[in-house]
Simulated scan of single mutants.
Amino acid sequence: MRRIAITLLFFVMSSIAMAQKKPTIMILPSDHWCEMRYFMTTYDNQGTKVKTPNYQQAFMEDTEIGPVISKIGQILTGMGYSLKDAEQEIKSINTKTAEDNVTMSKSSGASLVESPLDMLKRRIKSDVLIQIFWDLSRSGGGHATTFTLEAFDSYTNKRIATSTGSTQGQGSVPDLLAAAVQQNVKPFDKQMDKWFDDQKKNGREINLTVRCWDSWENDLETEYDGEELTDCIQNWLKQNCVGGVFNLSDGTESFAQFEQVRIPLTDERGNAMDARAFATLLRKYLAKSPYNITAKVMQRGLGEAILVLGEK
């Protein structure tokens, strides 16, 4: 009986631990902080000059950012979050490769570019990106520290939680900032929990685009077993999206844009599911009879995939 009781207790505790599991996070300085300290890089995105934070330079040259992220990371990991180390991953990323990573579409001539941040999110695969901004000013005999903590869904870039606060006292910037965050972190944690509960219940949100190479003899209006290909794809999405939830926001005979596509957090093997993995499942489905369609999957960050039909 004692052995049975211990087994049941272990099962209950494991179930509780599973239920309380929090999302994985990655902490980075905010765009505004990087702009103020001149840690920005300009790259060409389809002819448009885009400025993006140069995190590698920030970690190498700024003496505050590393300790600040470490202190905030300690607070959040103590609350059950799993922290991915952005600094170590950044050291292995060749930013120029990400900036020049452009793919040209055969059907429309459109180009796809993956920004350094998109590349970082894809490689680390955190659920949530947390950005921190802080400002330090003298106050009496010490310093006044204000901060803004914002959390974004890594897949949709939607803001899901925010917290602001301030503290006064003496000490290092990381210690003062940690004290300010500690005093204001509970509402932030509740917002994060609400978002993650929705993800577990209703699935992760991505965007999926289906296009056609101009070399392909068919299109999305080609019929298979009496149904147009667009309808066949929608039937597959109804069966594979969480709750059958997705939205066909735009479409022609050569283009279909699906938004608010809800996918499972993990696949059948327990691996994290992202837009590319989900689009690959659709690609494999269309490769079978009666479709026998060859297709190529392209990825933009974690939350957007493009499936181009006709060839690889």
Rank of each mutant, 00 (worst) to 15 (best):
V245K: 15
S139I: 12
L120M: 05
P187G: 03
K51A: 10
M13W: 14
N54C: 06
W195F: 12
Q56W: 03
Q182C: 01
V50M: 05
A305H: 07
A179F: 11
R262W: 09
D62N: 07
V128W: 00
F147R: 04
K200M: 11
S289M: 09
K158W: 09
V173D: 03
L208W: 02
K51F: 10
L83K: 04
T209H: 08
D127V: 01
E217K: 08
K51D: 13
K284H: 13
D219T: 01
Q257W: 15
L9S: 11
K288L: 13
V50E: 09
K158F: 11
L265Q: 06
Y55E: 01
M40H: 03
D274N: 13
A86I: 00
I90V: 09
E253Y: 12
G66C: 04
N235E: 15
E205V: 15
I130W: 00
F258G: 04
D225W: 06
N207H: 05
S108M: 04
L28G: 01
S215R: 04
M119T: 15
T42A: 08
F11C: 12
I306M: 10
R2Y: 12
W216H: 00
F255Y: 15
G78Y: 02
R283M: 11
G303F: 01
F39S: 01
R204L: 09
L177Y: 00
N271H: 14
S108R: 06
S70H: 07
A277N: 10
S108F: 10
D44H: 01
E35Q: 14
I263C: 01
T41A: 09
L149N: 03
T162D: 10
P174G: 02
P23T: 02
I263S: 02
P264W: 04
C34Q: 00
Q74K: 11
N240M: 08
L112H: 03
G301D: 01
A179S: 14
A144W: 11
N271C: 08
T252Y: 09
K186C: 00
K200N: 12
T230L: 11
F188Q: 05
R276G: 08
E228P: 09
R37N: 14
H143K: 13
R276E: 14
H32N: 10
R2H: 11
P67Y: 00
K296I: 07
I27Q: 00
F11Y: 10
Y43I: 02
C241G: 10
G73I: 02
N218S: 08
T145A: 13
S289E: 14
L265D: 05
T145V: 15
W33P: 01
K22Y: 02
Q131R: 05
G47C: 07
R2D: 11
D198K: 14
G226V: 03
T41S: 06
T156G: 08
G203K: 07
G251H: 15
T24S: 14
G141E: 12
N271M: 13
D153T: 09
C212G: 02
A279P: 06
L176K: 04
K71G: 00
P23V: 05
K201Y: 05
L281F: 11
V297A: 03
A110L: 13
A151D: 05
